[in-house]
Design a protein around this nucleic acid. Structure first.
Lengths: 218, 218
DNA sequence: CGATCAATGAAACGTTTGTTTGAAATGGGG
DNA sequence: CCCCATTTCAAACAAACGTTTCATTGATCG
């Protein structure tokens, strides 16, 4: 009855792995049950049907990743620049780092790209807390007068740069070639994104936005 | 026998639309044929099987979009900043703009996120030419001594920001709320990304990279 | 031991999938 | 008119899917 060896846990583990690799529709309950050393009827017995197994698998991955979510309580004497650098590197490590089960992020990012029922919960418990952390960091760089919309766009510029290396990994590899891609270590990417971002943020602290943010756009 | 009204063309059109909406596996030949006013056997008759119909549909979308690919022959007296602004806005319009058939981009970006057989051709004929255009623009901002790797990363920072608004559109909407998302017009996003990017590029022209690009990383 | 109940197993259920068949139209030349 | 090649059609194919049934196991408790 140890909670990591019973059939229910093995099903969740196998389901997460298969769902992550093939997506919801291409994954079959038979392959999941084969990987979990369980009978196909076990899915109905423990979860009811395939869709509820999927939802539970997403929730499982989300919980397993929750402890990783970066609210690392930075030291107050740490510079804002270092906080941002740390955030970017942590985020990239979550996306590209090895060692942990691949499917945790795989199933979550599949859900984010093509949301199903499990999406709301995922945003509420995982995405938004992370966004709030970034918001606080950015507060150190941006004038208090800056409207919320522009603060959001700046945040999206940061996470957009990071997510790109995960979502379009195969195209990047094809574009730059295997040899160069081998050198795309997390440190290299994090250093670039941090530098690219910090350089830009400096301009936001010194000068007002170039467009006066049209309040009623046509 | 007009090439836009025969069964083969109608099948390609309907296939692209359905594949774009549901993805390869969730799309059924029966739904495609229903949308094309054709019999299910027509797929086998004209294309052989479902996979070859998919490949042809991607190729069709790619050809239809080829005329849009931005090699707009900018005037030589145009400033580099304006060229980059123009590129970003054009790129965002391709991603988020309405008016043209949605499925052209839908099926292509699905292919880029989860490559199948049609990927190589797509990169060669559509992605790489676009990347080359961006490369030339960036040459105006970056010192000739900058290594290729870093030039690539800068390019990825730009397209990563743009693609984010397409790939994770539903999550953005959920994160900022419907009301704010309504205001995310292409002009607003393009202005922000251009400003964010140009601010950063300035620093690359004036100072050397902070990390000396480790040649043999461990 | 015998009864009980959660858990597992093998087999089959009905549907839907991509694919194939063979006949029925269709439309020009001889 | 008849013939022939091209194209369409309804019907059925085998395979795979999620789901269900029902018999069997194995441990627990009276």
């Amino acid at each position: 009855m140890s909670p990591n060896d019973d059939t229910k846990s093995r099903l969740l583990e196998a389901a997460g792995r298969v769902f992550s690799e093939k997506g919801y529709d291409l994954a079959t309950v038979r392959e999941i049950c084969l990987g979990a050393d369980a009978n196909v009827a076990a899915v109905h017995y423990y979860f009811g049907d395939k869709s509820r197994l999927y939802i539970e698998a997403v929730r499982e991955a989300q919980c397993a990743r929750a402890e990783d979510v970066p609210i690392p309580q930075w030291q107050p004497e740490m510079s804002s620049e270092d906080k941002l650098r740390d955030f970017i590197k942590t985020f990239l490590t979550r996306l590209l780092g090895k060692g942990r089960p691949d499917w945790h992020l795989g199933i979550m990012l599949r859900e984010l790209a093509h949301p199903t029922q499990a999406c709301h919960e995922l945003v509420r418990d995982y995405i938004r807390p992370m966004a709030d952390v970034l918001k606080v960091i950015l507060d150190d760089f941006l004038p208090a007068s800056m409207p919320m919309v522009q603060r959001h766009l700046i945040g999206f510029s940061i996470v957009g740069q990071c997510l790109f290396y995960y979502v379009h990994k195969p195209i990047i590899r094809e574009l730059v070639g295997d040899e160069e891609y081998q050198g795309y270590h997390i440190d290299l990417l994090a250093d670039h994104i941090a530098r690219f971002t910090l350089s830009s943020l400096q301009s936001f602290t010194t000068s007002p936005p170039p467009v006066p943010l049209p309040e009623t756009p046509a």
